[in-house]
Design a protein around this nucleic acid. Structure first.
Lengths: 160, 160
DNA sequence: TCCTTTCTTGCCATCAGTCTCAATTAAGTT
DNA sequence: AACTTAATTGAGACTGATGGCAAGAAAGGA
């Protein structure tokens, strides 16, 4: 596990007057053991392999904590559960274009997007530490025909 | 109520093989009677004043329908319920910058954002019919001090 | 070591939203 | 009008996630 993870967590706990607990250690261990995306239930299962007493509520609370201190990112586009990405410390951008009809998500990188992101966040008094942008649109096909061809594909694939 | 609303709904129903029902009429009537944002429970209450038999499930299903055909927009940033905006047919942009810590939402317009939006959506094979962009960032203060000053304000104001 | 404070946890109730299913109803056909 | 079909509805079970609360535990001081 990347050593920056525990460092950043420690720093956040210290600066917020929060405490190191066995449960938090175990959950972080489970969350960052691999680079895979996971949801709350996955994490509960993994964490309980290390400590069978971990409760569901603590999982949800710790997930919130890890999102707050910038170690996890929520990725929940078009699915019924919230998923988490434990592997984005070094990725400079996380831009998504989302089809409003079929929930298809297209990830993209774009230099102009990065520039614009900086520019707008600064102008509005924000700090552009975490580059992320989300655009909603409709498929060409959807606009022309009123029906998104990816919708059926995705439903067939059981994505919804 | 803007006559384009019923027109667009009719068109969507017809093109998708869906049916006109008393419940849908009533719910649309209730949703677009005013320009205010509302949530599912608000709408259920309003709709039941016109027809006491409307069920909660039908409200949720009709909300989905109205979002699909572009008559409603979901606005759920940083609140526990999903809210809906019935008044955006003519607004060219809906851009939001969101503080990752306190969930403060700043609406902005920006010509470059509009251009970039067009450019990216076209490049990825999408149709930029509905301009909307969502950027996540952190307050300057949060980045400097590790604490967002708006967080307490918002909590005091009961926004969360 | 014991004590105090305050954060944290597990349990369970609750909440918003979705799903299932049988009964109903719109819309087209005869 | 009667019939057929497929969409739609209401009721209630269910799901993912959150909130309240009393018991437990971390951190610091005496």
């Amino acid at each position: 596990m990347d050593s920056r993870i525990k460092e950043r967590l420690e720093a956040h706990l210290a600066s917020s007057g929060l405490r190191r607990t066995r449960q938090r250690e175990v959950i972080v261990e489970a969350a960052f053991a691999t680079d895979d995306h996971f949801n709350a239930e996955d994490l509960l299962e993994k964490a309980r392999k290390l400590d069978r007493t971990i409760s569901r509520a603590t999982i949800y609370r710790t997930l919130q904590l890890l999102v707050e201190c910038g170690l996890l990112r929520e990725v929940d586009f078009g699915r019924d559960q919230t998923y988490y990405d434990p592997n984005f410390l070094d990725k400079p951008q996380h831009n998504h274009l989302i089809c409003l009809d079929c929930d298809r998500v297209v990830e993209f990188e774009d230099d102009n997007a990065a520039l614009l992101h900086d520019c707008i966040t600064r102008r509005l008094g924000f700090h552009p530490q975490m580059k992320s942008m989300r655009i909603e649109a409709r498929c060409d096909e959807l606009a022309r025909t009123g029906f998104c061809p990816h919708k059926k594909e995705r439903e067939a694939a059981g994505k919804n």
